[in-house]
Simulated assay, not measured.
Amino acid sequence: MNEDLAQIEMTRCDYPQTKRGYERRLALLISANDLFLERGYDAVSLDDIVNHAGGSKASIYKYFGNKEGLFTSICDYRRDLFFKDVCIPFNPVQNELRPYLITTLITFYKHMIMPENIAFIRLIFERSQKDPQLALYIHEKGPKQVQLAIAKALESCAGKQLLKCDNPLYSAQFYFGILRNLEWRILMGIHIQETDQEIFDCVSYCVDRFLDGHQKV
């Protein structure tokens, strides 16, 4: 494991073994999430979080270690919510690749335009400038995992001679580039003028061109 990632993993503290402990941990996590989004990371203290959620700072130290560990846990929590239905496992026997690829991008886009997700991604960008380890951790646990899921789907189809894909990971990175223009516009606060149908038509067109490039010669 990369030493930076290992360092972050090592900071993990006790995970609750009781329902009450789990509820306390979750309350602290959600309260910190709300306060960070409202005020920004640097403007929120551990006392603010405890006053908002109830309990004591001892629980923060027990479950998260410190403020940085708490923020990392929030990133994990929000990542799981964001990606849980973005890239479902692909089964070449049950799924067709084209609708699978289109649905994945449309679902990703719908998550991206949620105001709270936009705000949190901006917060991550701000924090990652000050904490390179966090930036690497988030990339490895988030975007890279989704790229690997798509790469695995492409590799599976290539193995069944359904398409030609010599480097599935490169192709997966190229595939997610379909949304790059929309992502940047969303994060920069530029109004998306296209209708949902226009977004769908654009994504469908790009996926078709993507698949054209992977046809067997």
Rank of each mutant, 00 (worst) to 15 (best):
G159D: 03
S128N: 09
P168R: 01
D131R: 11
A153K: 02
K160L: 10
K152P: 07
P143N: 12
K110A: 15
E116H: 08
A153E: 00
P168Q: 03
E155A: 15
R127P: 04
R122Q: 06
K164D: 02
A135Y: 07
L163M: 03
S171Y: 02
E116Y: 11
H111C: 14
H139F: 14
A135G: 10
A151W: 03
K110I: 12
K164N: 08
G142S: 15
I150T: 08
I118F: 00
K141M: 13
L136C: 07
F120D: 02
M114L: 09
H139C: 11
H139P: 02
A149N: 05
Q129E: 06
V146G: 12
L123N: 07
S171G: 03
K130L: 12
R127M: 12
F125Q: 09
L169R: 04
V146T: 13
K141F: 09
I113Q: 06
S128W: 00
Q145E: 07
D131E: 14
I113F: 05
A172G: 08
A119F: 06
L162K: 01
K141I: 12
K144R: 13
A119Q: 11
C157G: 09
S128E: 04
Q161I: 00
L169A: 04
A135F: 11
H111A: 13
A135Q: 05
K130W: 00
Y137D: 03
M112P: 05
K152V: 05
A172M: 04
L154T: 04
S156I: 05
L134K: 03
I150Q: 06
M112F: 11
Y137K: 09
I150M: 11
L169H: 02
L162E: 01
K152D: 05
H111F: 06
F125E: 04
H139I: 09
S156N: 06
A149H: 05
L154S: 05
I113L: 12
L123G: 05
Q133E: 01
L163K: 00
E126A: 15
K164W: 12
E116R: 12
A135E: 03
M114G: 07
C157H: 00
L148Y: 11
H111M: 14
Q129R: 14
E155I: 02
L134A: 13
A135C: 11
M114N: 07
Y170D: 10
Q145K: 12
A153Y: 02
A119E: 09
D166P: 02
M112G: 10
D166C: 09
A119P: 09
P143D: 10
I121T: 10
R127W: 04
K130A: 15
N117R: 10
E116F: 05
L162H: 00
H111Y: 09
E126T: 15
